[in-house]
Amino acid sequence: MFGFGTDIGIDLGTAYVLIYVKGKGIVLREPSVVAIKEKTNEIMAVGEEAKKMLGRTPANIRSIRPLSQGVISDYDATEQMLKYFINKAIGHRLIKPRIGVCVPSGVTEVEKKAVEDATKQAGARYVDTIEEPIAAAIGSGIDISRPCGSMIVDVGGGTSDIAVISLGGAVVKKSLKCAGDDFDEAIIKYVRKKYNILIGERTAEQIKINVGSVYKREVPVDIEVRGRNLVLGLPKNIIITSEEIMEALEEPITNIIDGIRSVLEATPPELAADISDRGIVLTGGGSLIYGFDKLIHERTGITAVIAEDAMSCVAIGTGMWVEYRYAKGNPYNR
């Protein structure tokens, strides 16, 4: 269906792409995966369909993630993926949409320019970028315009962004290339080392979602998974417990908590006092792993709260920012 232009916000994540449309909210949430024919570079599938192909494609088809650690690693595939998702979210428009897209707080100007160019080529009339922790704060309901300190920790697929925000900007910020994908990788390495069993990305993600823990559970849980025995080369089933995953994730989780501590140490005293009173707000899919909020409280002494709809906060915040950016009467409106 053809229609007029609109304003949309895009959370261009390493693991998932979310699209927010003005007046409708989140209209699309799909994996950031593209399946491509090797010789012709023809796009075979995008999103959920492409994710099903991960680790299962023949030699002539590649199923890839075109973003790595929060930035574009395959420009053409990212452009095609964005074009597909934008069309799926809003259909064909007589007037191209104005798009806000989020980027990690630690990106270089070159990396940010690549995101802007890919979004424009995918069908945007105007493109604006917003840093992920700012978008996450807006989407979680924090009034970032106030002169008081708010701390946000956004744990996505490729990066963890930590920031102390006051008066609409980040006073102290840090972007770590350690997040949900690193949790999956740590689980794969642990299972390989302990059981001599090789599991794939999808199985590791399934383990993380179902029994992932970073804090001791009152009642341990477990899951049965299948992998390939590296000695015999045959499929084998094993039982993985939440306590084992706690051990597997110790290193990446410690890296994130060390990042939180370093941001707190660099925070001005007045804002640090605000954070101590208000607590730390957690967003992103990685923050949903069991016990993450409890572990932060234990290691920093500051209460941590998981935002409502944590996985969508960045997309919602980006969309709300776009709405304000182009609102009638806004002096910044183009």
Rank of each mutant, 00 (worst) to 15 (best):
A163D: 09
K208F: 06
V214W: 09
P147C: 05
I130H: 10
A135Q: 08
V172K: 07
Q206S: 13
V127L: 04
D143V: 15
C178R: 06
G149P: 11
I130M: 11
S150L: 00
L198W: 02
V214I: 14
G200P: 00
T203E: 04
D154P: 09
A118H: 08
E201R: 13
K208A: 12
I199L: 02
L167C: 14
K173Q: 14
A186Q: 07
G158M: 05
T159M: 06
D161M: 07
T119F: 08
P133R: 02
T203W: 00
P147G: 04
G149E: 03
L198V: 13
V211M: 03
P147I: 06
K177A: 11
A170E: 14
I144W: 04
V153T: 07
G139T: 11
D184G: 00
V164R: 09
L167D: 14
K177C: 08
K120R: 13
D161A: 09
Y195P: 00
G200H: 00
N196I: 09
F183Q: 04
A179F: 10
G212I: 03
D181P: 05
V214D: 12
K177E: 12
K208H: 09
A179Q: 02
G139A: 10
E185Q: 13
D161R: 10
T119I: 12
A122N: 09
G157R: 07
S150Y: 13
D182C: 07
C178V: 15
K174E: 07
